[in-house]
């Protein structure tokens, strides 16, 4: 019997994953692109290579869609900046102030709510922000407010919900970066006469920027595409782009328009990727 040698895993192991990605990720994106050039004629969707859906985005009389895109970009940029500013000191404290043997425990504790249900977490903020909620009680008690203020259903609530989630994500990426910076660098800086702030500004901060970039990129991408948080916390006062997309699918079943809006969302994400691309690198340990 002739012995046939099967080709080793090394040579084909990546094939199933690539096939899956092509079939269930690339193909759907192409389907959506095609869909965005289609039209609804008598309730049926037909491919007519029309640009009407993109025209609708730009010229819709009430400016709903362009407005939604701007709202999305504003909320996402604010979210990303605030999250980085809030998370960086936290990651720094975890990496350098907590004793080594407690670090892992402290880190897991700090990001524990990261693992709670996304829908539930957004909704929990409604309890906190409600007129009888703990924040209003504190503000009344401390005399800052005379009458309670409902803080849900606002851009503030959306950003707060986002910052809560993404501060945890950024803490993880920045911490992972900080603990890789060799202690000897900081010691050398101190030996050469740098004070604590100078050592941080010229050594630690520049070396930790890749961790910030990865986290900030993920924050931007995930926040701008998220439907849940703005829908639950932001309410209906202002619409973000993902809410506009869901509205087209849900109530109107207008898949061509929803696809066109999604393509515009993809375009924004791609632009963000190009901005961050230089700093994003995947490394093997």
């Amino acid at each position: 019997m002739p012995k046939t040698k099967l080709p080793g895993l090394k040579s084909w192991g990546h094939a199933p994953a690539l096939a899956w990605t092509l079939l269930f990720f690339v193909l759907p994106l192409i389907a959506m692109l095609v869909m965005s050039f289609s039209a609804r004629i008598d309730g049926k969707i037909e491919l007519t290579w029309t640009l009407d859906n993109y025209r609708a985005f730009l010229t819709r009389a009430d400016g709903t869609f362009v407005g939604a895109l701007w709202n999305s970009i504003e909320v996402t940029v604010i979210t990303t900046i605030v999250s980085v500013l809030v998370a960086y000191p936290l990651a720094y404290i975890l990496a350098y102030k907590i004793p080594k043997q407690w670090q892992r425990f402290a880190l897991v504790l700090t990001v524990l709510p990261f693992w709670t249900s996304y829908v539930v977490r957004s909704y929990s903020w409604l309890l906190v922000l409600s007129e009888n909620g703990i924040i209003n009680q504190f503000l009344l008690w401390s005399g800052i407010l005379d009458t309670p203020v409902g803080m849900g259903n606002s851009r503030f609530a959306t950003v707060l919900g986002f910052v809560h989630f993404f501060a945890m994500l950024l803490t993880l990426t920045i911490y992972a970066n900080l603990v890789q910076i060799k202690e000897s660098y900081r010691k050398a800086a101190a030996d050469l006469g740098a004070n604590g702030f100078q050592a941080f500004w010229h050594i630690t901060l520049p070396l930790s920027l890749p961790g910030v970039a990865v986290g900030a990129f993920l924050t931007f991408v995930l926040a701008i595409g998220d439907y849940i948080t703005p829908q639950i916390l932001g309410g209906s006062k202002e619409m973000l782009l993902p809410q506009a997309v869901m509205l087209q699918i849900g109530r109107q079943a207008d898949f061509p328009l929803a696809s066109a809006l999604s393509m515009i969302l993809m375009l924004v994400i791609t632009a963000a990727f190009l901005v961050f691309a230089k700093r994003l690198k995947m490394e093997r340990v």
Binding site: L29, M35, S262
Partner: peptide, 19 residues
Amino acid sequence: LLMAPITVSYLIIGMGLQI
């Protein structure tokens, strides 16, 4: 290609699959 889905929001992936 393998990492690409991480940069696309769930909403878009879900809608693409639905279509």
